[in-house]
Amino acid sequence: MTTTPTETTALETIELAPSYRLPIGTLLLGLAIGFLNIWVGGVIALFGIFLMIQAATLRLRFSPTDLDVYRGENRIRQFPYADWQNWEIFWQPVPILFYFKEIKSIHFVPVLFNPKTLRECLEQRCSPEL
């Protein structure tokens, strides 16, 4: 079930709804560039299709203690909030990239999820002052 942070408490798990804005935008950009250069446009369009598949299959779940990445019902990655040092969502007019830094690594994730809910969950569970 997909819920929003305003409907829940910090103790509940929130699954973000997918957003297809970035994949569709990338696909359309690839098609437009394809009129100028078929190879470059084709590569960008293929990347848009890849993002579309990822948006359809991946889910982010914010639990009380960590961010979990799921493919279907299988958890494929877990990121405990205690290890986070910083996070940022880049380009606010049209959020396209989510960055977070852990103690031992950094991560860049395309915004394939509802950006408003993503920001609300991050502010609620991982204060920007990390």
Score class of each variant (00 low, 15 high):
Ala32Trp: 15
Gly30Ile: 04
Ile24His: 01
Gly34Phe: 05
Arg21Pro: 00
Ser19Glu: 14
Gly30Ala: 01
Leu31Thr: 03
Asn37Asp: 15
Tyr20Trp: 15
Leu29Gly: 04
Leu22Trp: 04
Gly48Val: 10
Gly25Val: 06
Ile33Pro: 08
Leu36Tyr: 12
Val43Arg: 01
Ala32Gly: 11
Phe47Met: 12
Trp39Pro: 03
Leu31Asn: 04
Ile24Gly: 00
Ile44Ser: 01
Leu51Phe: 07
Leu46Met: 14
Leu27Ser: 06
Ile49Val: 15
Ile38Arg: 13
Ile44Glu: 06
Arg21Asp: 12
Gly34Cys: 09
Gly48Ala: 07
Thr26Ala: 09
Ala32Asn: 09
Asn37Cys: 07
Gly41Thr: 02
Pro23Leu: 13
Gly41Arg: 01
Gly30Cys: 05
Leu22Met: 08
Val43Ser: 07
Met52Asn: 09
Leu27Gly: 04
Asn37Lys: 08
Leu36Arg: 08
Ile38Thr: 13
Ile53Glu: 10
Ala45Glu: 01
Leu31Gly: 02
Leu27Tyr: 03
Met52Leu: 15
Ile53Trp: 11
Leu29Glu: 00
Thr26Asp: 00
Leu51Trp: 04
Thr26Cys: 06
Gly48Pro: 06
Ile53Gly: 12
Gly25Pro: 01
Ile44His: 03
Met52Gly: 14
Ile53Phe: 12
Ser19Asp: 15
Tyr20Thr: 08
Leu29Cys: 06
Leu28His: 02
Ile44Asn: 02
Leu51Arg: 03
Gly42Met: 01
Val43Met: 12
Gly42Val: 05
Gly48Arg: 02
Phe35Glu: 13
Tyr20His: 11
Val40Met: 11
Ala45Thr: 05
Gly48Lys: 05
Gly34Lys: 02
Phe35Ala: 09
Gly25Gln: 03
Leu51Gln: 07
Ile24Leu: 13
Leu27His: 00
Ile33Phe: 13
